[in-house]
Structures are given as structure tokens and as C-alpha cells.
């Protein structure tokens, strides 16, 4: 017994490599994007963002009107 109607016919022929060529581009692009994140991660380590994981969260909550002036001075 078979249900031919339930199985949709293959929409594109996979043996034709031209139709898959987009994947080369996509992989290339996505790899570059992902690499940017890796570099960002390494930068964040070197920048010392993992040295203290508590105070930045608190710092965010305080008013910054006066502090922003002093920051620019420094």
C-alpha cells in the first residue's frame, strides 16, 4: 500500500549543484558574522569585563547626570 498523494514531489533537484550555490555565500557571510562575535568576546575578555561581574549591574541603576560630566573630564 502506498500513499503517493501524501508525499510531495521534490521541489528542486539536488543533484543540480547550481541551485545550492547560495549556501556557499550564506556560510561565508554567516561565518564572518559569527567571527565578529568571537572577536567581540575576546575583546571583552581583554577589556576586563569578566573581572567584576557584580558592580556594572549596580552602576547601571544609579543616576548619571553628574557622573557623565566627570567622566568626560577623565
Amino acid at each position: 500500500m502506498s500513499f503517493p498523494a501524501l508525499i510531495p514531489p521534490a521541489t528542486f533537484d539536488l543533484s543540480n549543484s547550481k541551485k545550492m550555490s547560495a549556501i556557499y555565500l550564506l556560510i561565508g557571510v554567516s561565518f564572518i558574522v559569527a567571527l565578529a562575535f568571537l572577536i567581540a568576546f575576546i575583546w571583552s575578555i581583554k577589556n576586563g569585563q569578566y573581572e567584576d561581574d557584580y558592580s556594572p549591574g549596580i552602576r547601571m541603576l544609579k543616576d548619571s547626570k553628574k557622573n557623565s560630566q566627570t567622566n568626560t573630564k577623565v
Partner: peptide, 27 residues
């Protein structure tokens, strides 16, 4: 505690000579 960070980082409000305070809580 978090208030310690708040207080210390706002020392510049309390005294004019202090420009900036950054607390490292872990250390």
C-alpha cells in the same frame, strides 16, 4: 553590598576634589 558601590561611586557628589570612583566588587 550594592549600597557600598552606590555610595563609593557617588563620592564625587560628596567631595569636590574627587573626580571619579570605580568599584571592583569582586576584588
Amino acid at each position: 553590598c550594592s549600597s557600598c558601590i552606590y555610595l563609593l561611586e557617588n563620592l564625587s557628589d560628596v567631595s569636590a576634589g574627587i573626580l571619579n570612583v570605580t568599584v571592583n566588587f569582586g576584588l
